[in-house]
Design a binder for these strands. Structure first.
Lengths: 185, 185
DNA sequence: TAATTATTGGTACGATCGTACAAGAAATTC
DNA sequence: GAATTTCTTGTACGATCGTACCAATAATTA
C-alpha cells in the first residue's frame, strides 16, 4: 500500500505562485483559467492541487497570514523594549517592497469580514496571532497596549497604501511610538 | 426638447437598496440577477439605472463613503476639544447597528487597494475626507494627530469587527483617546 | 396631439465560469 | 513485475455571467 509520494515542494511552489498572482492581478476576480495560464500549467493541475476554488482561497489566505506573521515576530535583542520593537515592525511592514503583499492582505481581510464562513481560519488568527506576538497579553495593561499598537499600525498602513504619503504617515507613526512606555516587549 | 423627467427619488431608492443588498449579501460576488430578484425588479431595470456593473459599483462605493462621512463629521458643541470629539466618533462607528456598513466599507477598501483604477474616487477621498474633517490639517502637528486618530479608529474597528471583543478594543480606544491633548478640534 | 425621454420587462447571445471525467506518464511498495 | 497513488493534460457540460436589443407604458414639452 503506497504509490507515488506527494511532492510537497511542488505543492508549496504552486501555492506561492498563486499568492504571487493574487498580489499582481488582484484577489477578487481570480479564476482558474487565467491563473493557470499565467502559471504555465493547465486548470486541471490547479484543481488537482487544491481540490476546489474555495479550498485554494483558504490555502492562499493561510499562506499570506504566515508570511506576514513572520515579518512581525520579535527577533533581535533590540526588541527588549516596546517602542523599539514597534519601530522595527513599522519599518518592515511599511517597506515599499511589501506593498503588494499588504494590499492583498487587506483585500482578503475585507472579504473575510463579509464572508466569515469561508475565511473563518483567517479571522480566527488575524488579530489573535499578532496580539500574542506583542506582549503575550500578560496582564490587562499589556493587552490594551498590544491591541492599540496593532490597530495603529494597520490603520497607518491602510493610509500609506492609499495615499502613498510616507512623510505624513511615518510622522504620525513616530508620534505614536513616542507615547509608548519603554517597558518589556 | 424634453421628455419624461428623471425620477431622482427612484434612483436614490434603487441605489440605497443595492447598498443594503451589498451589506447583507457581500460585495465581491454581487451579480445582476440575484440582486435584481432580491430588489423585486428585473436585471434590465438595474442596467438601465446604472448603465454597467462597473458604474454601479462606483455608485455604491460613493454612496457608502457619503454615509460614513456623515457619521464622522463634527456637529455638537461637545466637539470643542479633540478627545471628546474622538470619543463621540468612536461611539458612533463602533455602534453594533453599523456593523454591516463597516464590514462593507472594509470590503470595498480592500478591493480598492488592489484595483486602484476602478476605485480611484474612493481612494482619493477615503483618507483625505476624514483628514479634513478632523482638524483641517492646519499645521503639521494637527495633521499628524488627525492621521493617527483616523488610523487608530480604523484599526480598532477592524479588530472589533473581527473578534467582537468589545471590552478589550474599547479599553484600548479609551487608552488612546486619553493621550490626546485637549486642544482645539 | 405629436414628439421625446424615462422606466420597466422579456428575450437572446456569446463568453466565461467551476468542475467532473478519462487517460497517460512517473514514482513508489509489495 | 503488479498494484497503487500522484501529477499533468485534454475535453466536455451545465450554469451563470454581463449586456445588447426590442417592445410597452408613463410623463413631460412644443
Amino acid at each position: 500500500m503506497a504509490g507515488r509520494p506527494v511532492n510537497q515542494q511542488r505543492r508549496d511552489e504552486l501555492l506561492d505562485a498563486v499568492v504571487g498572482y493574487a498580489v499582481d492581478h488582484g484577489f477578487a476576480g481570480m479564476t482558474w483559467r487565467p491563473l493557470a495560464t499565467a502559471l504555465g500549467v493547465t486548470p486541471t493541475t490547479l484543481v488537482h492541487r487544491f481540490h476546489s476554488k474555495e479550498r485554494m482561497i483558504e490555502a492562499v489566505q493561510q499562506r499570506l497570514r504566515e508570511r506576514i506573521l513572520a515579518e512581525t515576530a520579535p527577533s533581535g535583542a533590540d526588541d527588549a523594549d516596546l517602542p523599539s520593537y514597534a519601530r522595527r515592525v513599522w519599518a518592515r511592514v511599511s517597506d515599499p517592497a511589501r506593498d503588494g503583499e499588504f494590499r492583498l492582505f487587506f483585500a482578503v481581510y475585507g472579504q473575510a469580514l463579509q464572508a466569515p464562513g469561508t475565511f473563518a481560519d483567517f479571522l480566527d488568527h488575524v488579530v489573535a496571532e499578532p496580539l500574542n506576538a506583542f506582549g503575550g497579553a500578560a496582564d490587562g495593561d499589556a493587552e490594551r497596549t498590544a491591541t492599540l499598537l496593532i490597530a495603529a499600525i494597520r490603520g497607518l498602513l491602510l493610509d500609506l497604501l492609499t495615499t502613498g504619503d510616507r512623510d505624513r504617515v511615518s510622522a504620525a507613526a513616530e508620534a505614536f511610538f513616542a507615547t509608548l512606555a519603554p517597558g518589556t516587549p
